[in-house]
Computed example of a mutant assay.
Amino acid sequence: MYAVSGVSSALERLAFCLGGKSETVIAPAPLCYGFSWCFTRRPEMKFAPVHPTAAGIENFQLTLEAVQRVYKAIDPKPRFPVSTNPNNPLGGNYPQQLLEEIYEWGLEYTDMHII
C-alpha cells in the first residue's frame, strides 16, 4: 500500500512504478485533462484515450469493444488501463457488469494490470 496526497500524485506514482519507456496507458474518455498530463510526465510514456460511443452529449457509453479497439491499435501493447468510477469529469458510474467484462477480458486475454 502506498499513500499520497491527491490523485495527481497517485497517477504519477503509477506511471513511474508500472510504466516504462514506450509504454502506453489507456483510459476511458471524456476524462479530466490531468490524466494525460500525469502519465506523460514519465519520459517517453504515451497516453491513449478510449473514446466511447455517444448518443448525444449526455449519453456517452463506454463499451468493451471500444477498449479492445484502442488496445489492438497500439504497439507495443498497453500495460495498464486506468479508469475512475464515478467517471471524472461526468460523474456517472460505470455499470458493474461492464467493468467486470473489461476486467475479465484484460486479465484473461492481455498482459495488462487493472488499475
Score class of each variant (00 low, 15 high):
Ala27Met: 04
Glu101Trp: 02
Gly91Lys: 06
Pro43Ser: 00
Thr24Phe: 04
Pro76Trp: 04
Trp105Ile: 09
Ala54Asp: 01
Phe80His: 09
Trp105Thr: 11
Leu31Ile: 12
Glu12Thr: 12
Leu99Met: 15
Tyr2Trp: 07
Gln96Cys: 10
Glu58Gly: 06
Ser22Met: 14
Pro49Trp: 00
Gly34Cys: 07
Ser22Lys: 03
Ile74Ala: 00
Phe47Glu: 08
Met112Glu: 08
Ser5Asp: 10
Ser22Arg: 15
Arg41Cys: 13
Leu98His: 02
Asp111Leu: 10
Lys21Gly: 06
Arg13Leu: 11
Glu44Met: 10
Arg13Lys: 07
Glu58Thr: 13
Pro28Gly: 06
Ala55Ile: 04
Gly34Trp: 04
Phe16Asn: 06
Ala27Asn: 03
Gly19Asp: 08
Leu31Arg: 03
Asp111Ser: 06
Val7His: 02
Pro28Asn: 05
Tyr103Lys: 14
Asp75Ser: 01
Val67His: 02
Tyr103Asp: 11
Gln61Asn: 14
Glu108Ile: 12
Thr40Leu: 10
Pro43Leu: 12
Cys38Ser: 10
Ile102Lys: 05
Glu23Ala: 08
His113Pro: 00
Met45Pro: 04
Val50Ser: 03
Arg69Asp: 14
Lys77Asp: 01
Ala73Lys: 09
Ser36Val: 13
Tyr109Met: 05
Pro76Thr: 14
Asn87Ser: 15
Tyr2Thr: 07
Glu108Arg: 08
Leu99Thr: 11
Arg69Ala: 12
Glu23Thr: 15
Tyr109His: 08
Pro78Thr: 14
Pro49Gly: 10
Ser9Thr: 14
Tyr71Pro: 07
Gln97Phe: 12
Phe39Ile: 03
Ala48Ile: 09
Gly34Ile: 13
Ala27Ile: 08
Trp37Ile: 12
Lys21Ala: 06
Tyr94Gln: 09
Val70Gly: 05
